[in-house]
Write a protein that binds this DNA or RNA. Sequence first.
RNA 1: GCCGGGAUGGCGGAAUUGGUAGACGCGCGACACUUAAAAUGUCGUGAGCUCGUAUGGGCGCGUGUGGGUUCGAUUCCCACUCCCGGCACCA
Length: 946
Amino acid sequence: MEQYDHKKIEKKWQRFWQEKHTFEAGEDQKKEKNYILIEFPYPSGDGLHVGHVRSWTALDIVARKRRAEGKNVLYPIGWDAFGLPTENYAIKTGKDPRIVTKENTDTFRRQIQSLGISFDWSREINTSDPDYYRWTQWIFLQLYRQGLAYKAKTYINWCPKDKIGLANEEVIDGACERCGTPVEKREKEQWMMAITKYAQRLYDDLDTVDYIPQAKLQQRNWIGPSQGAEIRFPIKDSDRSIAVFTTRPDTLYGATYVVLAPELLLAAQLAEQAENRDELKEYIVATQQVSEMERTAEGKEKTGIEMKGIRAINPVTKKEIPIFVANYVLGGYGTGAVMGVPAHDQRDYLFAKRFHLPIQTVLEPLITKKEGEDALQSSLPLVERRSVVAVIKHWSEDKYLGVRWKRTNWQAFVIGGIEAGEDAAAAGKREIREETGYRNATPVRSLGGTVHAQFYQTLKQENRFAHFEPMLFQLENAERDPITPEEQALHDLVWLSPEEMDAFITHPDMQIIWDRVKGNECYTGEGILIHSGTFDGLESEVAKEKITASVDGVPRTVFRLRDWIFSRQRYWGEPIPMIQCPSCGWVPVPESELPVLLPEVDRYEPTDSGESPLAAITSWVETTCPSCKGPAKRETDVMPNWAGSSWYYLRYCDPKNTKQFASEDTLRYWTPVDWYNGGMEHTTLHLLYSRFWHKALYDLKLVPTSEPYMKRTSHGLILAAGGEKMSKSKGNVVNPDDIVERYGADALRLYEMFLGPFDQPVAWNEDSIIGVRRFLERVWKLAKQPTAQEPAPETEQLLAHTIAKITSDIESLKCNTAVSQLMIMLKTFEQYAPTEEQLQIFLQLLAPFAPHIAEEVWQGKGNTSLLEELPWPTYNPEILVSKEVTIAVQINGKVRSTISAPLDAPEQEVIERARSDNKVQTWLARGTETRVMYVPGRVVNFILDL
RNA sequence: GCCGGGAUGGCGGAAUUGGUAGACGCGCGACACUUAAAAUGUCGUGAGCUCGUAUGGGCGCGUGUGGGUUCGAUUCCCACUCCCGGCACCA
């Protein structure tokens, strides 16, 4: 018998598909379209990564299935070719990046074609091709005309090694994302993209698309809207005021100081008038030398300086409060000034502690019934084990009272259980008095409380409590009733030092509570206002509005998102098509002159001044102003590599168009992208940038939809064997070529699909690739066996189930279970030979996963049509309904036996059948039956008193 | 620190979303074929205790940890630990 020779078969079909243009998207716009997109690769010198194979194979399976379902599928591929690694390579070797790119893309193309992925190669694009970047430049000009591209002098993140400005988004842990060099701050004129103008829409429109939840969430967090208010704090003896942005106007009565960001103009101006003016100026200068990342790094000590002699006035309390300049406030966010509310903000709290500023509590926590119940639940074990159930701080000394309740009567166990109609603080005081004999104890803050199980049950049944508030009580100024002998008998009351307390507490849950007490955090949640004048008793949500209105504050939404720095002082990117004229200012290059070609240079390094190498080519820089025809200079910065990838999916629709980036006609047909898959690492930057460009183009009526991608999924990383990232330096990179050579493309595809859940990271483990290879060889063998005339009863239902499972698994990218289903089907066919028709269905289901072998086997059967051109198999759903089902019989929830019964058997009959089972009878004899549960078709459960 | 995701046999992982935990594959063991090995095929394989000469049966245990809800929890709730990804004082 002829052996399964993957090399021969795979080469044959790959050539066939290429010659016949099998996977090129059709032009027939009457047919229903389906646009499937993967992130086009950066053609690095390392060649194809097995991670590429994972993502592209998964979507290839979807594409092939949808073609079989009769859709006109567009599944394109191209190259995201501009970028730093290529440029750095060019700098090192002196080789033209164009040539490097050509070599790399040739390698990638060959590697991809050996995988049998059904890309439409006729639409291949390359972002570094002038025919492509002509349109990238063109789109830039449209955005410029909309006022979305502008030049601004900003403090930028400056990488001293790459000599390049980085977007904030490109800085990782204070270091350059690419080279790891610590980032410095430097002032620079840069082209900016006003993405913040679209912040609200980028946020809101996430509701209209089907992204995996994590991706939506990550985008939302990145955009990060905060609703709050701008409130003015007047400066004493001055007509000026400080505008602060706060999300917590409800805590305004607790604002005991104001802080300005060092880079704020106002800070510099006020410093001039301050008594300690030199000290302040020095601090302001020093702070700005440090990069923002470093300045705001975790664990970095908060520094700040008071502006002596200048006071602000809290607009509600009218009290004079100090003004600080401090590094923990950022100039670029909100108004660049904040009010300090140490009682209810963690950073403010630490700052106030450090500078000995007053801390004024203005909120009491409000615990909902739900939270109360949860707190009760988690504290039950404490009670039952008679452990420490409350920690009470001594009124003057650094001592804590560990209370170990002895009483078993439930009433004794309530700490802060609030009865309906009772005030939280009052309830706490009552409890503390009853339990410890201390009067006038003041609740300080939430702790986690405790209650007896029986009491909890009673409360739950009677629904008696409004809130449950576990809290810490401060015994300052509290009076102590004498401890009676009865009390002494009821409780162990001991005053302990913190060290003794450490030893005293053994239960892990109590440990957590104790740690919180020691940590002495401030309360940052919402609650009910206190010490807030006429606003006392209001809940935070209501108070925010009312307090804001009372001081003429302005409600405002502030975004975390910042404008996109678009300039790069580098070589290997799209030239920005702008000309600076001494008399006309910035003038766009006329569209007829696009593309502005990237000129060839001798040296690729940025100049020492940080300018692009293009700046050195005088003949290119010197030009005439398109407007006044006078002498002018070209912009020498280039675009970031995000530019070309922000719109590439549009070019695929009409890649050869020389009049437009894509015709209206093709855009209307193909867009939006139906399914876009990519890495989680691109869910913030690339995805957000391209959504932004798309929306801007939509507003210009250049694209027909407001969102580019209807559906977005993400794949998990493929890690090296040890669970580490694959990297050249570690020498643990797996080259797909080797696997294709040894096991074949079909085996590699199946293997990567079988590895594990698609959206989770997996470690490469070559040991198990042999399993899928064996599977393919068994398929090969099966096809050579004689087929049956009549379908075997053992196979009919399973085949229908297999069609159903694979059809739905592909749609949810659960390819691992789809492959396992194919294996189960194969095993059954090895026992009970399939008919010709059954074998055909099996091959059709296999084809998206392992297209070469499926097609070869199909052709080997004497068929002249292509397997993949047959319509996707269907099944009769009725066949899936079993008449007889196995039902588990449980005794007290444990499976003791199984019985068989008709699916539609009435409950009584099934229970009787279960009752008469031998094993069940022995169990039933041992106790008294109190109850029987029946879950139709699944489980009978007898509940016995044993 | 915050946000998101995860933890299941020796290993990768299944589990109809609250109903017989461990599908499928790898590995391992036994057997068959073979002079032998490889390849292939068949069967077995969570771990413990236990009954039986034996085919086989029984019992408690078991999905990161500690609790809770439920007739029943890998699945839901609370608290925690560790791992992966993202973010950085965002007021």
